[in-house]
């Protein structure tokens, strides 16, 4: 009967429609950077922004950060693409994966920020992404 065990084993537990703290931090940092004109961001950049915004001593760990980014992309909160390789090679560095906040991600961030969850309402609706 092992195959019938819940498929969610090992996955992050959360209430339906609720952002995890790191996910909120990522959206918050990404949204604030987009207000400054940078619509896209890469992994290290967002880790640095989170650290600066929250006054943390350390950068978010690699595993924690990229696992969250992947999860958010799957949920439709973010989308990503590879950077133009010519630009990366011109600057003599590896090419980056560039992320941007989707409309659903922006709505989720706005809802979370307004504290709608305190009234028992979902902070975001996953189905809107599909």
């Amino acid at each position: 009967m092992g195959r019938y065990l819940p498929i969610s084993v090992g996955m992050v537990r959360r209430k339906p429609g609720e952002l995890l703290p790191l996910e909120y931090s990522i959206l918050d940092a990404a949204t604030s950077s987009s207000r400054g004109g940078d619509v896209e961001f890469h992994g290290f950049e967002i880790a640095r922004r989170i650290r600066d915004q929250e006054g943390a001593r350390r950068l978010t760990a690699h595993g924690t950060l990229y696992k969250a980014l992947g999860r958010m992309e799957t949920a439709g909160l973010l989308e990503s693409r590879w950077e133009d390789p010519d630009r990366a090679s011109a600057e003599g560095r590896p090419r980056r994966r560039l992320y941007s906040v989707t409309a659903l991600g922006a709505a989720a961030h706005a809802h979370a920020r307004s504290g709608a969850a305190e009234h028992g309402e979902p902070r975001w609706q996953p189905g809107l992404a599909t």
């Binding site: 950068l59 760990a61 690699h62």
Partner: peptide, 16 residues
């Protein structure tokens, strides 16, 4: 150290 702190997340990500 940043890599080491995320090792547990890496392993759960691998399992997923």
């Amino acid at each position: 150290w940043r890599t080491a702190r995320g090792m547990a997340s890496d392993l759960t990500w691998r399992r997923q």
